Amino acid sequence: MDFIGRFESLDADFQNVCDRLGLRDLSLPQLRAGTGQDYRKAFTAEMVDIVGDIYQRDIRALGYDF
């Protein structure tokens, strides 16, 4: 694997992959729009601990934080 796309830049990252594969005129459909709010505001302290424990390696590798 030589590329990791991020949800925060999903459209641009999807286009990057399409370009690398030589695929043209593809787009991702938007089925549901989000609220645009910071996901961390929805987490309780307990939820942060649970998610942090389960996804500790990914959070560290990808530079996410709570």
Rank of each mutant, 00 (worst) to 15 (best):
G5L: 00
G63E: 01
A33T: 03
A33M: 09
F3P: 01
R32M: 01
L62A: 04
F14E: 00
M47I: 11
S27C: 07
R6V: 02
S27M: 07
V51S: 09
Y55D: 15
L10I: 15
Q30Y: 04
A61I: 03
T35P: 01
R24L: 08
S9H: 02
L10H: 11
N16Q: 08
G52S: 08
C18M: 10
A61W: 05
G5R: 00
V17G: 04
D25Q: 15
D49Y: 10
R20Y: 12
D58L: 10
P29C: 12
G34C: 01
K41G: 15
A61H: 03
G63T: 08
D25K: 15
C18V: 12
L23E: 02
F7S: 12
E8W: 06
L26T: 08
V48W: 00
I59N: 06
Y64P: 00
R20G: 04
S9C: 01
T44E: 05
D58W: 11
A45C: 00
R24G: 01
A45M: 03
L28T: 09
L26P: 00
Q15N: 14
F43L: 08
A61R: 10
I59P: 10
A33I: 04
L10S: 11
D2Y: 13
M1P: 12
A33G: 09
I54K: 14
G34Q: 02
F66Y: 13
I50Q: 12
I4S: 12
D65T: 13
L26I: 09
N16P: 00
D2N: 15
K41P: 06
L26C: 03
F66Q: 06
I50V: 04
S9T: 15
M1E: 15
R6L: 02
D13M: 02
R24S: 08
N16R: 10
T44P: 00
A12F: 09
D2V: 13
I50R: 11
R40Q: 12
K41Q: 14
V51T: 08
R57I: 02
R6G: 07
E8V: 04
D58A: 11
V51M: 13
T35Y: 03
V51E: 10
S27L: 09
D25A: 14
R24W: 12
Y64N: 03
D11K: 08
A45K: 05
Y64K: 00
G36S: 05
G52R: 08
L21V: 12
F3Q: 02
M1L: 11
V48R: 15
D19H: 07
D49E: 15
L21C: 13
A45S: 04
Q37E: 15
T44W: 02
R6M: 05
R60A: 13
A33Y: 12
Y64M: 07
M47L: 13
Y55F: 15
I50S: 08
R60T: 10
R32I: 00
I59G: 06
R57D: 10
G34W: 01
G52M: 07
V51H: 09
D49P: 08
G22A: 06
G5A: 06
E46I: 03
I54H: 14
Y39C: 09
G5E: 03
G63Q: 03
V17C: 06
Y39N: 07
Q56S: 13
N16F: 14
F14M: 03
G63A: 09
V17K: 05
D13C: 01
N16E: 07
F3W: 04
V17P: 01
D58G: 06
I59E: 05
D11R: 06
Y64R: 00
G22P: 14
I59W: 00
R60D: 11
